[in-house]
Design a protein around this nucleic acid. Structure first.
Lengths: 150, 150
DNA sequence: CAGTATCCCCAGTGATACTG
DNA sequence: CAGTATCACTGGGGATACTG
């Protein structure tokens, strides 16, 4: 499905479509490589792993312990994806108890500010969101529906 | 599942855990409200909808047309989530052909910079990522495995 | 330790039909 | 137009077991 690998790395605004899509700010259409990368980078586990790796390189087990709730499988998958995208570098030390370190590549490090701003925003506004949630649920409950906590 | 509504809106670093979790920069543990909000905000469709709404308010059908590939159901679900979180405001105009406008709330608007930085990063580095992908796939293919394009 | 391989389940998602 | 309701399906993701 992700066969866009060797395809044109250029921005996908060149695909000819009929509907009046004016260049707003970024392409919202499917098949756009930006969409795909965004999905990868904005991924739940990716975000967590990258944030952790920002501090220092970590070993597989360390990551598994730090990222609470991730399964071994998902950690492996996430790590492979990040490695393939050139965001994380995997280093195998040929020692008897196998030791593998994961570290951010320079490219991965450039994500720092972006991710940090996302996290900062979330932390800064979680109170407001919780309040909005409570208000919404309360209104819904009062409006007649009994289903709260959707 | 999302019953943290009326719970403590405070940062979740107060939950007592036994493992030596030092305050790195943000809580990676499950049950943390930040994790949940991050998942919501970093959601594929949410990102797209918010980006679109940043320009101007849109109607349901307009959104469905702009966000290429989204199903009616997912648009509704996404919109409800964003509304509940206080990021989007839903305005119903009581006219004969029902007209509903969706607009970013002030809170939602504060996401602008963050999302924009994410998109900008992606657009700026998609070439590097594509190259990394090609290199990774090429190396894997040369290493013996024939399965490319994972 | 650091994975890979399997099985399996269910939540997310698309398609379709119906309604105010 | 703007949804809601239903059904069916896929694959994301957890649990477990095995391997180098």
């Amino acid at each position: 499905m992700e066969e866009g690998t060797s395809k044109s790395p250029t921005h996908c605004a060149d695909t000819a479509l009929e509907h009046d899509y004016d260049a707003r700010q970024w392409d919202v259409r499917e098949g756009c490589e930006v969409r795909q990368i965004l999905d990868r980078v904005a991924d739940k586990w990716s975000l967590l792993v990258i944030a952790l790796l920002e501090q220092r390189s970590l070993r597989f087990t360390e990551l598994r312990r730090e990222v609470d709730g991730i399964s071994q499988r998902m950690l492996t998958v996430t790590l492979r994806h990040l490695e393939r995208d050139g965001l994380v570098r995997r280093t195998v030390h040929p020692v008897v108890p196998p030791r593998v370190d994961y570290a951010l590549t320079p490219l991965g490090a450039t994500l720092h500010d972006t991710i940090q701003s996302l996290v900062t925003w979330t932390e800064a506004h979680q109170g407001e969101i919780a309040a909005a949630r409570a208000a919404y649920d309360g209104a819904a409950a009062g409006a007649g529906a009994g289903a709260v906590g959707m």
